[in-house]
Design a protein around this nucleic acid. Structure first.
Length: 272
DNA sequence: GTCCAGGCATGCA
DNA sequence: TGCATGCATGGA
């Protein structure tokens, strides 16, 4: 941990450890009760939650402004959003049990690739595959950290270069995604510039192995489109058990955020 | 051995 | 359009 370079973040509706470990990103590891280590946008970071404030070790003010402020979605008013959620009985329980979850604004390509890997897979194994991908093809950042490899790097590696990931049938999907992102036939700018979620999802679904769910995750976590609603087995369960007619009105415009609270809450109920 | 995991492509009605 | 099945891998 780089104790010489740090940034102090004053908490406002932010549980950073849960946010980093609730199935949004697969690159963070717990290093202690209230601390985590990970890499995003080619930067290694140690975070320590000290209750009223969070210390970001390995980041200075410039890094915070350029990278982490956006990554942690600091400019969005989650207090206001969660206040609206309290008007719904189940969302109230989810928000009160696990307050302070934020949507991470990740790199678009990393989110796309990660959620292609996630399909028909479990979180520990997803993390393993992503870790091997970074170790094999990412830039060495020192201290055992690696960046997430670019589409070009993945393309160059080919199926043989990805064999040791043990990603199974997903390798051909990863390569198709790398190809189409690298050559621009899937246009990230177009996705960034539209508010039409359907149109944005269609652009991503040009890629083999990208369906509704992976597209929605990519839009939510990789493009900051907080109304995108990924429906996986857990969300399907939540909808059929609690919301047969769809999510309540108080989630309009931020369905992806509501989904994240419900997802984390519902997954942790079964473990009690 | 069987079932499941932050799904999707394919084939068939 | 809707539904059944196979898919790589590994842990429970």
């Amino acid at each position: 941990m780089n104790k010489n370079k740090f940034y102090v973040l004053h908490k406002n509706c932010f549980d950073i450890c849960i946010s980093l470990d609730c199935g949004q990103s697969f690159r963070w590891k717990k290093t202690g009760e209230n601390s985590m280590h990970g890499v995003a946008f080619g930067r290694a970071l140690d975070v320590v939650d000290e209750g009223d404030k969070i210390i970001l070790y390995g980041a200075d003010e410039k890094d915070y402004e350029n990278i982490w402020k956006s990554y942690f979605d600091i400019d969005r008013d989650y207090t206001e959003i969660c206040k609206k959620f309290l008007t719904d009985e189940s969302l109230k329980k989810a928000v009160e049990t696990y307050p302070g979850i934020r949507i991470l604004r990740q790199d678009s390509w990393e989110a796309l690739c990660s959620f292609i890997i996630s399909q028909n897979n479990n979180i520990p194994r997803i993390k393993g595959i992503v870790e091997r991908l970074c170790e094999t093809l990412g830039d060495d950042l020192g201290n055992g950290d690696y960046s997430f490899p670019s589409p070009e790097k993945v393309l160059e590696a080919g199926a043989d270069g990805l064999a040791n990931l043990r990603a199974g049938f997903r390798v051909k999907y990863i390569l198709d995604a790398a190809q189409k992102v690298a050559d621009g036939s899937v246009d990230f700018e177009k996705i960034n510039n539209t508010d039409n979620l359907e149109e944005a999802a269609e652009e991503l679904k040009k890629i083999k192995g990208v369906g509704d769910k992976v597209a929605a995750c990519t839009l939510l976590y990789g493009f900051g489109k907080v109304d995108a609603l990924p429906i996986d087995v857990w969300v399907k369960r939540i909808l059929s058990e609690l919301y047969p007619d769809g999510l309540p009105e108080c989630t309009n415009g931020v369905k992806g955020i509501a989904q994240q609270y419900l997802f984390h809450w519902r997954r942790n109920i079964d473990e009690q």
